[in-house]
Design a protein around this nucleic acid. Sequence first.
DNA 1: TTGAAAGCGCTAACAA
DNA 2: TTGTTAGCGCTTTCAA
Lengths: 348, 348
Amino acid sequence: MQERQGGVIESRAVRMNKTAMRKRANLRDVAAEAGVSVATVSRVMNSPATVAPATRERVEGAMRRLQWVPSAAARAINSGRTRFVGALVPTLDSDIFARVLANLEQGLTAQRLSLVVATTDDDPDIELAKARALLDIGAEGLIVSGMTRSPDFDELVARARLPVIAISCHDPDYRMPTIGYDNHGAALAALSHLTGLGHRRIAVLHGPLRNDRTQRRVLALQGQGDADLTFHETTLSTAGGCQAVRGVLSGRRPSAILCLSDVIAAGAMAEVQRHGLRIPDDMSVMGLDDLPGSAHLYPALSTIHLPVSRMGRAVADALAGWVERDEKPDPQLLDHELVVRASTGPCR
Amino acid sequence: MQERQGGVIESRAVRMNKTAMRKRANLRDVAAEAGVSVATVSRVMNSPATVAPATRERVEGAMRRLQWVPSAAARAINSGRTRFVGALVPTLDSDIFARVLANLEQGLTAQRLSLVVATTDDDPDIELAKARALLDIGAEGLIVSGMTRSPDFDELVARARLPVIAISCHDPDYRMPTIGYDNHGAALAALSHLTGLGHRRIAVLHGPLRNDRTQRRVLALQGQGDADLTFHETTLSTAGGCQAVRGVLSGRRPSAILCLSDVIAAGAMAEVQRHGLRIPDDMSVMGLDDLPGSAHLYPALSTIHLPVSRMGRAVADALAGWVERDEKPDPQLLDHELVVRASTGPCR
DNA sequence: TTGAAAGCGCTAACAA
DNA sequence: TTGTTAGCGCTTTCAA
């Protein structure tokens, strides 16, 4: 079959001068075209200094003529590296994950790693399926959101001995390193800002409870007996905030609305104002996230700042270190911070 | 070296029963463990029906015991497929791209393709570098934004014979298929909504001109002599909108503000209201994009709806068809649409 | 139903 | 400075 192989190369080279080649050239084709061995071609790629200039030029000419592009798969099979990791996030359609991913991608790029994204819609089964798909295509590490996993997920990553980091949450005892903030504490901080202003009757608006970060925030508040809280679940969107506020205002009116996500708060504020109420005079509105836009709403939204950009960079470094140098990172807690702006005021 | 090979397998298998294996198991290890040939193991993976149940079970047991995970690279080298494509977008930190990518990812998933994302910050050189990186790791196709390319980009994709689609724009004569909307027409539609309401003195707020989509929108308006337009470049953010409005209101006051992106409009509306002006009575504000949140701002933003979700799905189908079945897609123009809400009113 | 063996495109050890 | 060649882990004929 050496014969056959030779024949194929020959016919390719011949055809090439007339019309488009039907197949991508490989190292052997380039070597044949340049009249050198495959090793020399490989050297031109990987250690050009060890190749005589004249030879190198001949090889480079051949590469150009054959429009040769190295095969990533072949390189990967030798190096054992694919140089990309996967991120499993609930949705891409959210300012908060966009910001995490933006920073993550930048941090990974600095380490010459690429980022594959996959969305889970907060469904552990989808997460599992997409994790499988990511492993199938060769992801060297994974980022997951929160701490709700499918049972099979753990077996999967254990088998593959895969670096995995959970983000947007914090729990040093979780079976994989977490890098994130304290959702429980952040929710409490938001509430105590309102109670500190004298608010007692407070409507709490939050997204779907199947998201465990949302769940933690809600649970944190449910433990607080000193305030009169009513909880309203809605979709994680401005539309959800609007809708929930319509419900809130149709009943016994609270003096403040605590939104456990800024997107919801944005919708809530708009709807409150559409009802002719002034913020914060007639109604205080508090958020939680601190999206880039929240400072520039009208009125500017008081909220809890979550360090998502910092988180993105931290995760990039942590995962890169794990993947590249086998350094398993420690769990990392990033502080949240109260940001008082114009949407909250004293109860009256 | 057959000896050596055998010896290594042996020692691995032996060690495995005592302590963790130092290396990931491969097909040969599994075959040896199960007492079958590598071909049989491969069949268990790819066409289980052709393997005797008893044999299959033995093999599956061996896979489990050795915690075997197939190598993506080895599979890729045989199939010539990596099953992922790359998207090059200016930024992830924007509602608009988040929404495109969300739909893109969903569409690709349906075709069993994964999505690698890379950000370019609207810089052709960064785009080129990241395109190289994506090819290096084996992307089978690329999505780029707009029509500004580095000269070397074309050579790169030509050499790799790589399917590439340009999005967020429309030009049937562009050297690669475009799937997107008519930025020129959308800007004109926004303007004519305002002029139709009687507005003549209009401040136009827009993002950085190095983005060619923004540039098209601006150029479209600059050709319009019948209105008195002043242009204000700012950052593509709510903060940018706020800041630009401060400049606008310090000069001769227009009766309307036309923002060529909704994010800018959101900031602009907030700042206008902070100056004590009512929208639309004292000032009309018009957007362009129609972000999910724009309908739920206060007041609800009049804007031009760009079909970004539809675009995401269309691109997914087009690129999948190209990559999987070599069907090069035709350019595709998606219609924009005027959405009149509460932020615009008659000039007075 | 199974196995032997030839590749896939590249890297790297070793020889010349 | 260059070439020969044995792998990397898998798929896929072809034979048995």
